[in-house]
Design a binder for these strands. Structure first.
Lengths: 141, 141
DNA sequence: TCAAACTCTTGACTGAGTCCGGAATCGGCC
DNA sequence: GGCCGATTCCGGACTCAGTCAAGAGTTTGA
């Protein structure tokens, strides 16, 4: 599905200096298999696989993944946090105002024009996050 | 300070089909005078002016303002909602990861390149929201 | 195998935001 | 100016995502 994400999650975790546990692998699988899922959705997926996990373990795991750049956290206005395993590129998101739909969008012109602000106020800018808001074909009808 | 925002808030409210009340004028003044404020900050400012307002009235008012395009709601990941009275243009925001600082940023190239996604999945896109993340001079030190 | 370090569980807690019903205020009309 | 319907405001209870803390359990490297 996505070549950039290794299927050997255990090795992937170890490479990033993390201990390997069943929960972590299950969480990794969940965000790879269900990109843009909420914490609750991820918890459900993990529970389906492992039987039970505490909510806290999922929060911890996701927090660690984000910290170690194994996952990215996105949170459009008014939504709860979502997670995805696609990291390291400059892709953005397309969100429907009517439903839960969210798509990945590659940068408009193949470069990173949005990363350059006209006046940075002395900031060191390390990320430009772009969210496109609109209506999906279904909600428009 | 900003010519695009009329000082006659009562007329401004009426133009948008809203009843004029002391609370609404005070909320309007608050978001014009303190852009990027949280609901709590706005409530404080309004209370300073009027003595007391319910939290609910502020939420309602801000909700109506956003609905009638008198205000814009912004909510960077991990932050609570912020409001600003600058609407109708294509400006974006620069946010410090270390503190509460947030600046307005005009579109990088003066046009609206970010409004065009390469693949819109059939969506009707009406807004592109850009948040630049970084570190302000103070937090960097 | 063993100990140290790390991870998971449980349960209580915080705080932003929402819901709802009744009271107060606004604005058009007589 | 006074009245009345519609809108707005208030207070309080409630929801829900997310956090904190402490102890039990698991992983890892020697």
């Amino acid at each position: 599905m996505n070549d950039s994400v290794p299927v050997d999650y255990a090795a992937h975790l170890r490479e990033h200096g993390l201990q390997v546990t069943a929960q972590r692998i299950a969480v990794m699988e969940a965000i790879v298999g269900h990109p843009h899922s909420s914490t609750e959705d991820i918890t459900d997926v993990v529970r389906t696989k492992l039987g039970s996990v505490s909510r806290q373990a999922v929060y911890d795991t996701l927090g660690v993944f984000v910290e170690k750049h194994l996952a990215r956290r996105i949170q459009p206005s008014g939504w709860t946090a979502r997670y995805e395993a696609r990291v390291g590129d400059n892709h953005h998101h397309l969100v429907c105002r009517g439903c839960d739909l969210m798509y990945d969008i590659d940068c408009a012109v193949g470069e990173t024009p949005c990363l350059t602000a006209d006046d940075d106020h002395g900031f060191v800018i390390d990320e430009a996050e772009v969210v496109y808001w609109g209506w999906c074909p279904t909600c428009r009808a």
